[in-house]
Amino acid sequence: MNNEAAIGHAHRDDLGSKMGMWLFLFTELLLFGGMFILYASYRYMYPDNFKVAAMHLDTLIGSVNTILLLTSSLTVALSIAALQRKQTRFSVYLLMFTIVAGGAFLVNKYFEWSTKIHHGIYPKGPEMANLSDGEVIFYGLYYVMTGLHALHVIVGLVFIGFMIVFILRGKQTFDNYQKLENAGLYWHLVDIIWIFLFPLFYLIH
């Protein structure tokens, strides 16, 4: 029954825990949602500037990063499946792969940002004065949105790191894996946000 979970503190309520996680994901979604509203508005106001600015982003790095995140999402999903089948080692390896892929994503991001900064394109940077209003805003949004996203990647990686520890210590097992599932949900959300950021910043031609 639906209400059984109410009986007693000690009773574990996996569905409730998952619900809490989903609700939290909505807040993240709307946090980025606010920025997507700004992006849409400014792209509408400065269509040509946005095009010019987007040309200068490296589509290759963007694509590689997309594949990295998609694959890391896959391995999280697989790792839950592995745990359900009591293949604990395999599950841990898959999570480790996720961490590696997520780390690689961040490294790429680092190089991407530093090239831009090297060229003087950053808020208040020397190149910014030569750019049109729309381009300045484009880069402003670019830094804030990808920066905030990268922050979420880092948080997600920390979560997943904890999950590895939990699994190794037997705190997450084949019949008790809601924490792992929640960490997975978070990671997939980070992936989804990138799925939208990628075409919006790298693929305007």
């Binding site: 949602g33 700004l38 049109s132």
Partner: peptide, 30 residues
Amino acid sequence: LLATPILGITLLLIMMERIFGVGIFDPALG
């Protein structure tokens, strides 16, 4: 749950503008 994040990001952007000069709301920067 669904409205507060919008305020959150808006306030964050004010901080970004003040600290880093990211021009998103600043009319001087478009």
